[in-house]
């Protein structure tokens, strides 16, 4: 049964969206100037993705 407002995201899309949203929110809450915020957001997003993909690779040998 569909409620009309429903969609599916892949694992990577979900992680990317999550990382982006959290990075933007943290950037705005913890930094004041626009440049500081952009730097924080880009760095945080990069680390989210790096660590996320890294953990994925680290778990790969135990996946089966």
């Amino acid at each position: 049964m569909s409620n009309g407002f429903e969609f599916k995201l892949s694992h990577f899309q979900s992680m990317l969206l999550f990382a982006l949203v959290i990075s933007v929110a943290f950037g705005f809450l913890s930094r004041r100037g626009p440049l500081d915020r952009v730097k924080y957001i880009v760095w945080s997003l990069f680390l989210f993705l790096l660590i996320g993909v890294g953990i994925g690779w680290a778990m790969y040998p135990f996946s089966r």
Partner: peptide
């Protein structure tokens, strides 16, 4: 205003996506 808009949009987006993913 910047922080207010960011909080509103980011929390709203998470809720919309979370509800959309059921």
């Amino acid at each position: 205003w910047g922080r207010a808009l960011a909080c509103f949009l980011m929390v709203g987006l998470l809720v919309l996506v979370g509800a959309g993913m059921r």
